[in-house]
């Protein structure tokens, strides 16, 4: 690993180490709040302690790697597609939470993901997503008797 940045610590690597340390702390805080103990054998706190200790040690290991610049080289990345996909998932959650229904949620997710991968025909993709959602919904509710989240459109079927 003879990367040019090996002189300076890798900020992202240090952030990872810090997150691991924070997770270890979170486990420790959580296990200190457990009230019941096992009558016989090992109690419910042993495993969290092992995991917290392990994460603590690994935080140090990752920090050392960050200082030595052992992390792989990272390429530039585009944020726009990531935001589109996560946005699509967020809209899906919102639609399901507020009872807009599975089919429209699927429609938006499909179109948003396709757009993230460079498609510009948004309306066509919305139509494809709608048909896909419709097919899935019908298969599930009619053939398998499973109830996917309902909305106005689902109620008409």
């Amino acid at each position: 690993m003879e990367s040019p940045s090996s002189r300076r610590p890798d900020v992202a690597g240090l952030a990872i180490a810090f997150i691991l340390l924070a997770l270890a702390g979170l486990i420790w805080w959580d296990l200190s709040r457990l009230q019941l103990n096992a009558v016989y054998g090992v109690g419910p706190k042993a495993m969290p302690m092992v995991v917290a200790a392990g994460l603590g040690i690994l935080a140090i290991g990752n920090a050392i790697a960050a200082f030595r610049g052992d992390l792989p080289e990272r390429e530039s990345l585009q944020w726009q597609p990531i935001i589109l996909i996560i946005g699509g998932l967020a809209v899906m959650m919102g639609f399901i939470h507020f009872g807009v229904g599975f089919i429209l949620a699927t429609t938006v997710l499909f179109a948003a993901t396709a757009a993230a991968f460079g498609r510009r025909a948004f309306l066509v993709d919305l139509a494809i997503g709608f048909v896909l959602g419709l097919i899935i919904y019908v298969v599930f509710s009619k053939l398998l008797a499973l109830s996917l989240p309902m909305g106005p459109i689902e109620r008409l079927l």
Binding site: G99, M150, G151, P152, R155, L156
Partner: peptide
């Protein structure tokens, strides 16, 4: 109960 449920099914 139900804005969606209401209108269509009631």
């Amino acid at each position: 109960k139900g804005l969606w449920r209401g209108a269509l099914t009631a």
